[in-house]
Design a protein around this nucleic acid. Structure first.
Lengths: 154, 154
DNA sequence: CCGCATTGGTCAATCTGATTGACTATCGCG
DNA sequence: CGCGATAGTCAATCAGATTGACCAATGCGG
């Protein structure tokens, strides 16, 4: 597989880049003693940082069915990362909020994100990295500037 | 989920970009009448374009176990996209090559890749897109310039 | 202020793509 | 020749997601 071809498909590059980041993140998390963190957790933690998340919110963030999102949240509760929050106005919504444990994980995740950013900046230059991030953001964002679900539901 | 945050994690952007491309590719393939194409097929078709692929080759390309790679190739044979090629020197390797059907699919895939490239070029500019591709390639490639597996096996 | 479609969420069964584990056959080297 | 390394397969299992059926709270039109 001599890969000297100059313009590999974007999809392949994105797939490789994504896996590399996610694998590296989880490798570093394990080194720090986090052993039961699944790939999707990072997204959820970020989303839950400032306000409780709901199942429907996760559906919109991740682009999975509500059943899958519900299970994911349950798993994070089992792991002690999330806890059910007190119901608000609407008694149908059952919000989840970060537990202390979850907040500690979030802290490490954010720290590692920064490490990985620095790693990438070292590889291609900080300026190029920010350019890349901005272009990528512009390319995938909707007209309102909002990021779509990780996997949009058609 | 008001996502006006300026610097989303790279991993999220890559995940979104990847899914967007892959989903779009398969949507367009279905429009053209291809109904049983799985996400991994594209990578395999490209790899098999110029020379037969082997199970081990797929393992290195995709970063899955050889069992999974073997099944994937079998599925593509069932779909009529690959066929077993005549064994070469080494009787252990059982190469797969593109069938005519597979070559037709590859043709459509390449055409759609070009369409999607054009779409992205329209979004952020052709120059920026090439910059992005080059930077990304540089960031993920090994020192020899070879692209790693989609999902490296640690 | 009541009826009913909509919305948020769960339970259960199933599927798919992958994994781990055990195995066979061929190769190539000392 | 003998033996470790390499290419591949078979079988069982798993994890994360899906489809389908369902319940409870909401809120809007008449």
């Amino acid at each position: 597989m001599s890969d000297a071809d100059g313009r590999p498909p974007l999809a392949r590059l994105f797939a490789i880049a994504y896996r590399q980041l996610v694998d590296d993140l989880h490798r570093r998390l394990r080194q720090r003693g986090w052993h039961d963190v699944r790939p999707a957790y990072g997204f959820v933690l970020l989303a839950a940082r400032d306000a409780p998340v709901t199942v429907t919110g996760l559906v919109e963030l991740l682009g999975m069915t509500k059943q899958a999102a519900s299970k994911l949240a349950d798993a994070m509760v089992s792991g002690g990362y999330l806890q059910r929050g007190g119901a608000g106005e609407d008694a149908r919504v059952r919000p989840f909020e970060l537990s202390d444990h979850g907040r500690r994980l979030l802290h490490d995740v954010e720290q590692i994100y920064a490490e990985l950013d620095a790693l990438w900046a070292a590889r291609i230059g900080a300026d190029r990295l920010e350019q890349l991030r901005a272009d990528l953001r512009a390319a995938v964002a909707g007209p309102d500037g909002a990021l779509p679900a990780v996997r949009p539901l058609w």
